[in-house]
Design a protein around this nucleic acid. Structure first.
Lengths: 340, 340
DNA sequence: CTGAAAGCGCTTACAG
DNA sequence: CTGAAAGCGCTTACAG
């Protein structure tokens, strides 16, 4: 910048002002500076700018895993929304681990980010509370906690209940949930903590309808879904309605059922959660709980930019609306004959 | 850091050295400094460090779109591999646009990144050549260009040919390609430039086998695949073997065929490209060209770290091995003979 | 093994 | 509208 200033015969301050428009510069000087910048191929040094300004124009987005239907989509939408707000984004993978999430906060405190959006699964409410005092942060509500932190939450229990009611209304009598982390030892996988309220919503509806409610958990991947399907078919009473706590699990369940020649929706109805892009294109297409991503993303941006501007503002909590999208996997064929 | 130094009764240099281990520090001093750092909750300022060191420890990863089966997976793998090499990663979306790709280079030149991995579709060979002189860069070979830039390329033509040969070997007589960007006006979508060599490989094999080869293109999304399926079924001669230039397109094609009660593999065989995670779990599971992502990612990391260390090193080009993974979508039921 | 000085490249705050 | 001085928080290079 000093070189440009010397070449143009002005001070570095004037170059800075011509470039950033923070102070008025005469049209003539501005043009001269711009030409010189262009000719010399000058590029501002962001490290120096960040050091002086004490901000970077970059926000962190910390998600458990990038290679996941839901989080890939969510990250993509967040990146675009922040770009519209004039902020660059960095996407970090935490692997749903304490360490990964702490790293995201550390990177934020290192002044690498002006703020952080985190889908937290590995840290406790108390830890996030403490960390949120040092960094502008918005928590995406995978856990239903954090009353003192800005948060955009899903109504997990309510929406799971709505999905389960769909199964009941379609005539299912033997329900099952795939992905509720209730092993024989009672331990809860951190990656599955978000699914506890969904399981609650499921069980509430099953109990209210007086229906049996089986529960299997093998992990959170498609492969886990395949294994869950096998376990469902080994139950003494085969379920006829399955609620999966994510679409990814549902994809595996559909595959696992097909492996055993069990038909959907003829023999079993299946409903998922997240309404990822592929749900529409599967055969059968998958019914699913669809959170309103426009609201989720818009509120995350709004809350974070507000928090960056005013670190002392009172915490806000927003709940994202949802719908249950019905597709082939829960639609009984009209011309159906009784099973042989 | 100055405060920590004062508190510990040493110089800032000693704090820096205790923290970074660049120079030996007596065990006693080191422990004292570490305790003080811990107690005061000190965190290094990365902007200042970057400014002084002239490097950030961050690499940029620029992909056309995050919300895509293939690029979500690829980004995820690259992030992990760079982490193992001690480098943080920033994932940028370019939307396959000139502007997006130029922005990725600009961010790199701004000293925000030490290097850049880019899956480029929007920039010309000449432009990338010029930009690569200012920034350590590795090009992922969506385009088959760039002899003077470090590049990790796919053997697109060869692998597409191998996939097509699979269809021929399975008895298909009327081939079709989905996703080759050959509109009536001859214009090529930038997002589809990578698919031209795949189309070449397909047509070469079709011609060598003396088979007809239809060609449809509607875009690169699942929805485009659905539309392509419809167009295939409207052809005077319905194809019995379909090569899709991506798995995402294939997912749409499978859905579109199901909409018209056309069965896979009984009526039509389908093969995709990329071997994304979901290909295994679809019903029918999808045969696909599987690039060796371990090699792709490993070589990208190797070439970029080498280039960062030695900006003047001669350019290297690596080609990624592939396999064709056969699954249900091209496996004829045993009790069926190929058509006469 | 430890430290004092200088400077990375900007922008803030003060001055005119 | 323009500029000179100072300083953001580190690390490099020199010295002992």
């Amino acid at each position: 910048m000093r070189d440009v200033a010397a070449e143009a015969g002005v001070s570095p301050m004037t170059v800075s002002n011509a470039l950033n428009g923070k102070r008025p510069v005469s049209e003539q000087t501005r043009r001269l500076v711009m030409e010189t910048v262009e000719r010399m191929g000058y590029q501002v040094n962001v490290a120096a700018r960040s050091l002086r300004q004490r901000r970077t124009g970059v926000v962190g987005i910390a998600v458990p895993i990038l290679d996941s239907h839901y989080y890939a989509r969510l990250s993509h939408r967040l990146v675009r929304a922040f770009a519209r707000a004039g902020l660059a984004s960095v996407v970090e993978e935490t692997r749903a681990s304490r360490e990964g999430e702490l790293a995201a906060f550390r990177d934020s405190r290192l002044n690498a980010y002006d703020g952080l959006v985190i889908a937290s699964l590995g840290l406790s409410e108390r830890e996030i509370d403490a960390l949120s005092r040092e960094v502008p942060v918005v928590v995406l509500g995978e856990q239903e906690l954090h009353r003192t932190v800005d948060r955009v939450g899903m109504p997990n229990a309510e929406s799971a209940a709505a999905a389960t009611r769909l199964l009941v209304e379609r005539g299912c009598r033997r329900l099952a949930i795939v992905g509720a982390p209730q092993g024989p030892d009672g331990a809860t996988l951190p990656e599955a903590a978000a699914f506890l309220p969904r399981a609650d919503g499921f069980h509430d509806v099953a109990a209210a309808a007086g229906l049996s409610a089986a529960s299997v958990h093998e992990g959170v991947t498609q492969e886990a879904g395949v294994r869950c399907a096998r376990r469902l078919l080994e139950l003494p009473e085969r379920p006829d309605g399955v609620f999966c706590v994510t679409d990814t699990l549902a994809f595996g369940v559909l595959r696992g059922l097909a492996d055993h020649a069990v038909r959907v929706p003829e023999d079993v109805l299946v409903v998922g959660f997240d309404d990822v892009e592929d749900a529409r294109y599967l055969v059968p297409s998958l019914s699913s709980v669809a959170p309103d991503l426009d609201v989720l993303v818009g509120e995350a941006v709004r809350l974070l930019t507000r928090r960056i501007a005013d670190p002392a503002a009172p915490a806000q909590e927003v709940t994202v609306p949802f719908t249950v999208v019905e597709r082939e996997s829960t639609r009984r064929p009209h011309d159906r004959r009784p099973p042989p």
